[in-house]
């Protein structure tokens, strides 16, 4: 599904060079559920940007599907991303002025899915997530758990093969957290590839494989306090 070889990202200032990702090799096969764990500043964010096609690496190769994307322009990345990657964030990142329905419909709109088809698919996905009765509400009228479910709905509405989840339960209580993780697990079983960044061991236990990141490198195991 995706494969990185000797992937590096270096941030330069006039005086300093910081290596956020250092010769990273990672392969994720289709249908896998990977949990990436690591302390703050270990390069999770940078890796997520690159894997999510939001940024280019400084060197190395990144194959997304069958395509080498490390040298792609921003426009090409946007095209690949549209319909290719679903994102779920810790703080949900719903647009406050749009209703639940409109938020979920947003990626479909950018994909230029016709209106009727769009409506059908949004209704379908809201029903599946169990939030269809809240379609006309605004994000601020929902609980955190409900908001995250809407975010999940938005990420899967256009049926991406690949979902990137950035600490999806970080702002949820354990009950709501479990519900969201169950949902992700279910999606994975249906064939969606998932890469998730998390601090939580329990969430990581849902994954088929755990990857530990430290100082921009993959390590075998992390010491307890560093997670």
């Amino acid at each position: 599904m995706i494969k990185t070889e000797n992937l590096s990202k270096v941030f330069k200032t006039t005086e300093l060079e910081t290596s956020a990702i250092d010769n990273l090799n990672l392969e994720v096969n289709a249908g896998e559920f990977i949990a990436i764990m690591g302390p703050s500043g270990c390069g999770k964010s940078t890796l997520l940007n690159i894997l999510g096609l939001l940024d280019n690496p400084t060197s190395g190769s990144y194959r997304f599907g069958n395509q080498e994307v490390s040298k792609c322009s921003e426009k090409q990345l946007t095209t690949l991303r549209k319909g290719g990657v679903g994102f779920i964030f810790q703080n949900f990142n719903l647009i406050d002025e749009l209703t639940v329905f409109e938020n979920v419909a947003l990626p479909l709109e950018y994909l230029k899915v016709p209106k009727n088809e769009r409506k059908k698919r949004v209704e379908e996905v809201l029903k599946r997530i169990g939030i269809d009765h809240r379609a006309d509400h605004f994000p601020r009228q929902l609980s955190g758990g409900q908001q995250q479910r809407v975010a999940v709905a938005r990420a899967i509405a256009f049926k991406p093969k690949f979902i990137l989840a950035d600490e999806p339960t970080g702002n949820l209580d354990s009950k709501n957290g479990k519900e969201v993780m169950d949902l992700l697990s279910e999606l994975n079983k249906e064939g969606t590839t998932i890469v998730m960044v998390t601090h939580s061991k329990r969430d990581a236990s849902y994954a088929s494989r755990n990857v530990f990141l430290y100082d921009g490198k993959i390590v075998d195991k992390l010491i307890e306090e560093e997670v």
């Binding site: 939001l54 946007t78 991303r81 990142n93 719903l94 950018y110």
Partner: peptide, 16 residues
């Protein structure tokens, strides 16, 4: 800022 970032992530381009 956040609004624009979300839209960008989901594939919005400059005109939008």
């Amino acid at each position: 800022t956040r609004d624009i970032a979300i839209r960008k992530v989901f594939g919005a381009d400059k005109d939008i």
